[in-house]
Every structure is written in C-alpha cells, then in structure tokens.
Design a protein around this nucleic acid. Sequence first.
DNA 1: ACAAAAGTGTTTACTTTACACCCATGA
DNA 2: TCATGGGTGTAAAGTAAACACTTTTGT
Lengths: 233, 233
Amino acid sequence: MTVSPLPLAEFVVRVDNVIFSVDTDQNRLLVLLVQRQQPPFIGYWSLPGTLVRQGESLEAAAYRTLAEKIRVSNLYLEQLYTFGESDRNPTYGKRYLSVSYFALVRFADAELIVPGELPVQWFALSACPDLAFDHSKILAYGHRRLCNKLEYSPVAFDVLPEYFTLNDLYQFYSTVLGANFSDYSNFRSRLLKLGILQDTHQKVIRGAGRPATLYRFDREAFAALKDKPLVFV
Amino acid sequence: MTVSPLPLAEFVVRVDNVIFSVDTDQNRLLVLLVQRQQPPFIGYWSLPGTLVRQGESLEAAAYRTLAEKIRVSNLYLEQLYTFGESDRNPTYGKRYLSVSYFALVRFADAELIVPGELPVQWFALSACPDLAFDHSKILAYGHRRLCNKLEYSPVAFDVLPEYFTLNDLYQFYSTVLGANFSDYSNFRSRLLKLGILQDTHQKVIRGAGRPATLYRFDREAFAALKDKPLVFV
DNA sequence: ACAAAAGTGTTTACTTTACACCCATGA
DNA sequence: TCATGGGTGTAAAGTAAACACTTTTGT
C-alpha cells in the first residue's frame, strides 16, 4: 500500500439494486424501478439505490434500499458488479462508485412501500423504459446473471413458496428464460432425478385437472451435492 | 438519489489484482504477490494493488498496478468482486473499498519489474503463504473464477502464443484444473469439433516424437458461436 | 528398431430430446 | 364423457469416458 505521489480520488459509494420478481400468473418477469424527482434525469426511471452511510457495509446498504421500497419475507441477494465513473460529480465534488446488487424476491408477498413523493413500480422487463444514468446497462447485466443462475443454482427455491408443485417451478423457469426453454416432462424428470425435492405426498387441486403433488426444497440433500455441478435446465 | 439525513461514508478505493499465470513447463499455476514493507501486516505477502487516483477509472488502476509489476504483451483482465470493510481505516480516517480484478497473463513473456525496495514474486498456488488482509479470500475467489472461466470461455487463447499445438492447450488446462481433468484424446476431439481452431497445416518438432500441428484461435468462428454455450471441458 | 510424442478410432455407458400416452379430477 | 392439467415411459439421437491403436519423428 504505497502512498501515491499523485492525488487520490475521493469517493462516495452508491449501491444500486436490480430487483427482479416473477409474476407467474401473468407470466411476466418484473423489475422494480423508482422515478427520479431531481435532476439529472428528472422524470426518468432508475434502479432503487442509496448512498452508503458511515459504518454501513455494502450489503447492509443493499438490504436497506430494498427494505425502503418493499416488504419481503424471502429473497435472494448477491453482488453484481461495480461501475466506476472516472469524472467527479458536480454536486458532490467527489467521484461516484456504484456497487450493484442483484436481488430476486417472491412476488406474492412483495408488498410495495409507496411513499407520497417517490413513485415505485414493477415493470415487465419486456416493457421497460430507458433508464437514468447507466442503469439500463446494469439491468441488462443483472438479467444475464439471473438467467445463468437459474441454470446451475437453486435460487428459484429462495423465492418460490415453501410448498410448490413441479408446474409452479416450471412456470417460474419459463417466465424467466422464455418458453421453449425445455419440455415440461423432461424438466420434471431432470429435477426429480437430482434428488433435492422432497415429495410431501400432499396434493393440491387448482381448478380442473388432476391434483398436483406438493414438493419442498430439501436443503440437506442439496448441501450434500454442493460440489457436484447441478443442471436445472 | 435522495440526500441521506445520516452522514455518508467517505471512501478511498483500492484496486487489488489476482494475477495468474501458468508455467506449462513445470506444470504450475502461479500467482503474483508483493511483500509488504509497511505495517499493518509488514513482511506478509499480498496481492498487488493500488489506490485509485483522481480521474482514473477502476480498470485503468488495475492495468496500472499490473504494469508496475510486470511487462506483458497479452493478457486477460476482468473485474472480480468488491470487498467493503465497514469500519474506517485509522491511517486515512476513511473507509477502504477494495475492487478486485482477476488477470491471466502469458508466462513466457511476463517480465517481472523488480524494483529495489518492493519484492515481487511468482508463487505456485499450491505453495502460497497466508496473505495480508483478506487477500487469501480474494485469491480463493479468483481461483474459483479461473477454473470456471476455463470451462466455458476461451480465456486460454488470450494467454497462449498465437500459434500453439493441441498439446500446449491441453497442458495449460491440466495445469490449471489439475491432471485427470480430461483424457487427452477426448479433449482433442472436443476442441476440434467446436470449430474454433484454425489448422495452419504447419508442423512443429519439439524433441523426439511426431511433429505436432500448429493451430490458431479463430476469432471469427468463435464470434459466430457467441450465443451457443461452449464446453471446453 | 525402439522410444516418444501426435493423432485416430471404437466401444460402452449414459444423457438429452421429442413425443406418445395414461391418470385423476371438475364440469 | 370430455376437457384439463398432472404425470409416466420410451425410442432415437447425441455425448462422454476409457482406452486401444496407428502414425511420424529422433536416436
């Protein structure tokens, strides 16, 4: 850690969250956006973000931003990427660094906190406007990560209800990855063969048709397979 | 970007590089370390890093650190992860944020710049000491990334000479992933079937044995397959 | 002629894909 | 009894792993 002879940059660090959710009823992948009330980019939609406070870890700042916008019981959160602009911000006279986080929340119990002044809203990813700053780039990056994660990691179970049918799981995957990502019956057999789903022997009836079996994610069985690469798609 | 009522943290941002190289002659995966001359952790080895200067992008800082330690003609560089301590550093009175970068350089032409005071050295990953700060954690993270990258992305070609034999490529993979990562003949057929290697029809003789064909990476052919997932192992 | 390294081919087991078909329920 | 969604099975194609074998060079 040599002391540099040239002046160091002083930074204010932002955390910006790409918060996804899946509305399986309407088959839509959603992203949470807030509308800016101040310049620059006034009126534009942007990712929910915040400035990191004294004594606050990056992850804590990410959780705080999330908690300011929605109440959720279950979620998956991980760091995405750090974007650094090289020129100083005129307002603060300092440089901004944006550490982005990627979150996936359960739609059914994601209750939006809509304060008077700051519009917060789910957007279908397919109908998403141009965002402020470089947030469209961050969003695209987050979407790629989400698709990849689904293939080899059990994030879906962090966000599905505790008990779910194989069709619920399939709908979830279809909505994120697009239809034709896989044949339903092959998806079934693949997932069941992994041995990470517990059959509860309970059935659920939803309208017409044969009752579906309820499964739950078996965390112990999954932990035992931690080193083996899993393929969900 | 709401102005927060609570005091914001002021940051000094470091860039720390996990710089890997592969010595295919000795079958060793190497990482570049520097020995600390100041407290804390005086005498400990650490990842080469630097503080980000005014007007300097994160990536530029990563390249600068690299260029201060080694001269290379070819390399692969990407951002790894951002580690943020939540408590302020006593020396600077500010918080540190460490944005880590992951680099892979060609060993043959990585010429170490050894200044008088600051020892810089390649370490075999298998014989790597405990590092200063949380750098062992960062290194482990970088190693995992390297192994994953090799499986689905053509980083090896950024770091192999322009013309190489299939055995060179195999040695490279073996050294990083460990022997028994794959049978040589199966590796050959898999790589050739991808269609991203150009046969130059030139042969090279290295000691005894049948001359080997020289190949080169076919960037156009690879670009055409960009959307299809490739498997190198 | 033999060792060494490059390169080819083959056998076997497994996965993936596409699709046909049966099952259990409500209307 | 038929529509609807749940669930099983299977044939064909493709991939992976192990390994035997051939080819071309230096010594």
